[in-house]
């Protein structure tokens, strides 16, 4: 078996470990949900618990949330860490097999992106596990790894002259890191919006605006204010989640800005112009503007909190589309996917 095959094997192993971790996190979440439902029938006004003991913070988690499954969390944590380690080994061996820095095509980009996301997730949860965020991030990670192995995979080899530059490390490396961080931030924002809906007793599925018998009404069992989401009272309050999402998004945004500038500098070397409205450049620009809008929305009266988080959803969608659609469907100068 050569190094390239070993790398692929390690990536498969990492995907397996993440799948186990995903299941364990889901069990943990289900356990919390079940207990929360039993303890808090839907009628209890949700707002009352804001800032109360259940929404206490990391560190005090264990006594605050007796309903969590310690065994599931132990398994989740162990397999999560194992997956990160295996993936790291897979990336290193891939680099050795190719004889260069392993960020030159879609397959490698996905591996490193998943690595960053799962690593950031592990660091963020070193003191307190928020299973919901883990489920989103690991769910996406497993999916991405499967997609990478089955669809994006190409043989490890050296790169064409246009990519032979230290900017392959800086620009692409930073772009991947930003994408990984945005992923975790996105998950935190999703949770923030759900939690916010529950705190403020606000749901799009129930309420005066919803027609009886309509589609939305038939989904009303899934309203964040309903019993199914009682577990939301076990997560940190919306303000704290927003602070968490903001910090991640801010780091991501700074790195994204660097990606944009670094990309322009590299384009100046490689293509003879720093900006040419190439599809990838447009996508990066749009994502940047949307995240800038997010930062402004946060500080605009009437737009902070939940509404600002919607910008994160749009921004993250643009980041993903910029990676997938622009690489696979649109033709441009960034046709380095190897597919």
């Amino acid at each position: 078996m050569n190094t390239g095959d070993l790398s692929t094997l390690l990536v498969w192993a990492a995907a397996t470990a993440f799948t186990v971790a995903l299941i364990a996190y889901t069990v943990d979440m289900a356990r919390i949900a079940e207990q929360a439902t039993r303890r808090a029938p839907a009628a209890v006004p949700v707002g009352a618990s804001v800032g109360g003991p259940v929404s206490a913070v990391a560190g005090s988690a264990d006594e605050a949330a007796p309903s969590r499954s310690l065994r599931a969390e132990g398994i989740a944590r162990a397999t999560h860490y194992l997956g990160v380690a295996l993936l790291f080994a897979g990336i290193v061996t891939r680099g050795i097999a190719a004889g260069r820095w392993p960020t030159a095509n879609m397959y490698e980009f996905t591996l490193v992106g998943v690595f960053v996301a799962t690593l950031v997730l592990a660091i963020m949860q070193r003191r307190r596990i928020i299973p919901f965020i883990s489920v989103i991030v690991l769910g996406m990670s497993v999916l991405s790894l499967a997609l990478a192995l089955l669809k994006f995979y190409i043989q490890a080899e050296a790169v064409q002259p246009a990519l032979q530059s230290y900017w392959l490390i800086i620009h692409v490396g930073v772009a991947i890191t930003a994408t990984g961080i945005f992923t975790v931030a996105f998950a935190a924002s999703v949770l923030q919006v759900l939690r916010d809906g529950r705190e403020n007793d606000h749901s799009h599925l129930v309420g005066p605006g919803v027609k009886a018998g309509g589609l939305r009404a038939s989904l009303s069992g899934w309203a964040v204010t309903g019993p199914r989401f009682a577990w939301l009272e076990q997560v940190p309050d919306a303000r704290r989640l927003e602070a968490m999402a903001f910090r991640l998004n801010a780091v991501g945004f700074v790195l994204w800005t660097f990606t944009l500038i670094g990309g322009a500098i590299w384009a100046e070397h490689a293509w003879g112009r720093y900006w040419g409205w190439d599809p990838k450049e447009i996508g990066t620009f749009i994502a940047w503007v949307v995240y800038a809008a997010y930062l402004h929305a946060r500080t605009t009266r009437g737009w902070s909190g939940r509404r600002a988080a919607y910008f994160v959803f749009v921004g993250y969608a643009v980041v993903l589309a910029n990676f997938t659609v622009v690489n696979l469907v649109v033709t441009g100068k960034h046709s380095y996917s190897g597919l």
């Binding site: 409205w277 447009i282 996508g283 503007v289 949307v290 800038a292 809008a293 402004h296 622009v326």
Partner: peptide, 15 residues
């Protein structure tokens, strides 16, 4: 904020 959003939307047709 509105102008930033508009800018993002206006950049889309170019792709």
């Amino acid at each position: 904020l509105l102008l930033l959003m508009l800018l993002a939307v206006a950049a889309v047709p170019g792709t």
